[in-house]
Design a protein around this nucleic acid. Sequence first.
DNA 1: TCTCTAAACAAGAATAATTCCGATTCAGGA
DNA 2: TCCTGAATCGGAATTATTCTTGTTTAGAGA
Lengths: 150, 150
Amino acid sequence: MALSKAEIERRMERMARTCRDGGLKLTHQRMEVFRELAGAEDHPDAETIYQHVRRRVPAISRDTVYRTLATLEEQGLIHKAEILSSRGRYDANMDHHHHFICTACGRVHDFYSRTLDDLPIPRSVASFGRVESAQVQLRGICTSCAKTKE
Amino acid sequence: MALSKAEIERRMERMARTCRDGGLKLTHQRMEVFRELAGAEDHPDAETIYQHVRRRVPAISRDTVYRTLATLEEQGLIHKAEILSSRGRYDANMDHHHHFICTACGRVHDFYSRTLDDLPIPRSVASFGRVESAQVQLRGICTSCAKTKE
DNA sequence: TCTCTAAACAAGAATAATTCCGATTCAGGA
DNA sequence: TCCTGAATCGGAATTATTCTTGTTTAGAGA
């Protein structure tokens, strides 16, 4: 079940409005990168987006795709999923725990919660596959980053 | 509050036992990489671990650190946090949602849950900082990967 | 204890994702 | 239409990670 044309158009319009409000130019490239994501449901990566948009905008560069994705994320128009930083982070704490991630400095704090260890998984998820683990990720600003910002 | 010597030793012993059981050699390098993580609470990345271990084992190579971390993770002795794959994944769905991630193929499925949108955050987290968003990550094997494995 | 061998290691080259840089183009306001 | 700063292009640079080749070594067995 792909997204409806109407939904895509709604997203395109919101994007155009946000860009205008933010003083960002509505370039052909920017719109096509967003259109690609607005119609996708499979969380594509930058390279995939680049390859698809290139069919419509042959001269577009990878750099533009990367820059545009970063800009759109800043504007709150898209999400970048899963990645904390470009580096993997390791941890020898094998007790079941959850993470608080500071979006400013990238620091990760573990925390524990019996309630969160045993989350109610919606029945609909079963259609995706078998769940093997569940973890809560909190994002925010840590106390030391909050201090330095003031 | 650093980890107690006793806890570190407990982890070291478990590591030694696991290696022996798995037919893995207890090399100096392997033990020092694990010791570094066993005593750390800050989720260091591979480069940081390399720099620290190097002070004790000057000739160790980055490759060994990377290989050892992968081996330790396979053995269930450490966690690799946050990273799904090496590529960022993008998403124009800005409604609050959660993720089911297939650990075999890396595919990501969105799902929705009012209950999960409003998780009870433990009071202790407040000491880390201000929480701005909460998201549940489920990991497992998706139906299509489960099929091809049979 | 000594020997042997597969497993593990070191060093640096290779790869992959992403970002930077200098030159060029263009969106949108005047 | 003209102008200017923002955005783009193309390729080089950077960063994290993995691979390759030759060397070392843990630990099994004599």
